[in-house]
Design a protein around this nucleic acid. Structure first.
Length: 276
DNA sequence: GTAGGATGCTAAC
DNA sequence: TTAGCCTCCTACG
C-alpha cells in the first residue's frame, strides 16, 4: 500500500502513538542495530512525511529516514503484550501505549537535518502537504515531451503519487496516459492537482485508495458488488480485460518504465492531431 | 514446494 | 534498459 497517503498516515499514527514519549528501539533483523542502540531511551519529538518518505524526529540525534519501497510494511499493536519480534523486523519501536514493527523497507537510516533537507530539495510538491501547490509541477510538465503518465510517477515532479493514483487520476480526467506533458492544459492540470489533494486526503483518512465516484458505484450502476484485491474501489488499476465501469469498454494494460499502466482507451482517447 | 508478482527506486551498463 | 534490493502472498504443480 505504499503510496503517499500511506506514508502520511504513518506519520500521523507515529505522532499519535509516540510523540513526546520515550521509546525503545531495536532491529531484530540487524541492519539498523547501531542506530537503534543510539535512539533507544530517547523521546520521539515528531514525525512527518514528504511524498513517500517518512521522517521520525529525535531531538539532538537527527531523523530516522524511512522509505518503504515496494515491499515495506508496518504492523502495529498495543503497548502491553508486545509479541516477540520475527527476524525480518528491521525496526521495532515500543512506547508506553503501542509498538510498531517495520519490515522490508528500501531505506531505514539515521540522517542529519542537512541530509533531510537534501531529500526535500529533490522532491516535487506533495498534494498532502498543505503548504505545497501544483505550480512547480506544472512548470516542469508543461515543457516536457515525456508522457503525462511517466511525469506523474516522477517524484521530482509530484511527490507521493504512485501507480494506483497515477492510473486513477488520469482516468477520472479522461486523459490519455501517453499524452505529452506539454500538451496538458493549465485547466486540466489544475483539475488533476486538486483532485489528487482530495483523493489522497481521503486515502489518509481511510488508509486505502478509493477513486470511484458515487454515480459509478456498483449500486448506482445496478451491477453486482465488486471485490477488489487491493482493498479499495478503483476504475482501472489492475482491472485489465474487465469492462470499464463507465463505458463497458475493455480496460487495457501496457508496460511503461518498468511499471504496469492501466487505462480505458474509450474514456481516455488519444487527441487527434490538430485538435485543440 | 516453487515461481512470480506487487501500490518503489537506484545504480550500473 | 536492466539488475538488484527487500518481504509477503497467490497461483500453480
Amino acid at each position: 500500500m505504499p503510496e503517499g497517503h500511506t506514508i502520511h498516515r504513518l506519520a500521523a499514527d507515529h505522532r499519535d502513538a509516540f510523540a513526546g514519549r520515550t521509546v525503545r528501539t531495536t532491529s531484530p533483523q540487524g541492519k539498523f542495530s547501531d542506530s537503534a542502540a543510539l535512539i533507544t531511551g530517547q523521546e520521539l519529538a515528531t514525525a512527518e512525511a514528504h511524498g513517500k518518505h517518512l521522517f521520525l524526529g529525535f531531538d539532538g540525534l537527527g531523523w530516522v529516514h524511512i522509505h518503504l519501497g515496494l515491499f515495506g510494511k508496518y504492523t502495529w499493536g498495543p503497548g502491553r503484550a508486545v509479541p516477540p519480534p520475527t527476524d525480518t523486523v528491521r525496526l521495532r519501536l515500543v512506547g508506553p501505549d503501542a509498538y510498531a514493527d517495520l519490515r522490508g523497507p528500501t531505506t531505514c537510516t539515521l540522517i542529519t537535518d542537512a541530509e533531510k533537507q537534501a531529500i526535500h530539495d529533490r522532491l516535487g510538491p506533495d498534494p498532502l502537504r498543505p503548504e505545497h501547490d501544483g505550480e512547480a509541477a506544472f512548470a516542469r510538465i508543461s515543457r516536457s515531451r515525456t508522457s503525462v503518465a511517466a511525469l506523474l510517477m516522477d517524484q521530482k515532479v509530484v511527490a507521493g503519487v504512485g501507480n494506483v493514483y497515477r492510473a486513477e487520476v488520469l482516468f477520472r480526467h479522461g486523459i490519455d496516459p501517453y499524452r505529452p506533458g506539454r500538451d496538458l492544459t493549465r485547466r486540466e492540470w489544475d483539475a488533476i492537482w486538486s483532485d489528487l489533494v482530495g483523493l489522497m486526503r481521503e486515502g489518509v483518512r481511510n488508509n486505502r485508495i478509493d477513486t470511484v465516484r458515487p454515480e459509478h458505484t456498483p449500486e448506482a450502476m445496478g451491477r453486482p458488488p465488486r471485490v477488489d484485491d487491493h482493498g479499495g474501489e478503483v476504475y482501472v488499476y489492475r482491472r485489465t480485460g474487465q469492462p470499464c465501469h463507465v463505458c463497458d469498454g475493455e480496460i487495457r494494460t501496457a508496460g511503461l518504465a518498468a511499471r504496469n499502466l492501466f487505462w480505458c482507451p474509450e474514456c481516455q482517447p488519444a487527441q487527434r492531431i490538430g485538435m485543440v
